[in-house]
Nucleic acid binder design. Sequence first.
DNA 1: TTATTATATAGACGTACGTCTATTTGTCAA
DNA 2: TTGACAAATAGACGTACGTCTATATAATAA
Lengths: 111, 111
Amino acid sequence: MSIYKKSAPVDVVAFAKALADDTRQRIMSLCCCERLTVGDITTKIGVAQPTVSHHLAILREAGLVTAEHQGRETFYSLNQERLSVCCGQLMVRFAPDEDVTQTVKHALNKR
Amino acid sequence: MSIYKKSAPVDVVAFAKALADDTRQRIMSLCCCERLTVGDITTKIGVAQPTVSHHLAILREAGLVTAEHQGRETFYSLNQERLSVCCGQLMVRFAPDEDVTQTVKHALNKR
DNA sequence: TTATTATATAGACGTACGTCTATTTGTCAA
DNA sequence: TTGACAAATAGACGTACGTCTATATAATAA
């Protein structure tokens, strides 16, 4: 079970730091719609397995991925809800009210 | 005039890196609703003036603030539109469709 | 021009971070 | 129990980054 409850406050700097690496963003993209093992990710990403484990630990710490242990494998998947909450906080932290609306429009127009 | 047009593609990693520092986020908060000079920011932030200039350069590079020169002063303000676009891209990059909607809800509920 | 003020740039310094190899821990099959 | 496999941890190494002081650049005032 994650330490991140629905009401957990968002540290926007920590959230940004977790996102501030290309390898981690690629891992997040991979885990967006699929449960993947560390081995799967290692193969697809093309960096060493300990490096992948390291990045997964950072993403876990930020609550952005969840880990499920099954036998000797661990399946990772993106924590969509946490991501949503963090993005929401990011928007409202700096954007004045009318601009949040615009952000929403931008987001929806991309779909 | 900024190099960032409305249609400029968003480098989500670069965006996250620009946000991934507490001093820069504090600067962004300060510039959210006010045009401020480097001197103003330096006083309010409590770090050396060259450090502030350095962070402002990074935020400028990411398109997150705009600079207006007036005499020997430079006024900085947050680029709300760019921030909106980047947040939107961040949401849609990882969140599946139904989750974007949820992100929007989270954002709006905070208002 | 000369002095003063505002900002930017250069460069040094220490710390944080991403990556790797080697090893450990944990799980399953023979 | 032993061997093989999956993932995590330890530790080394180089680079990137945040901060500072010193200096340069640019604009205004005397």
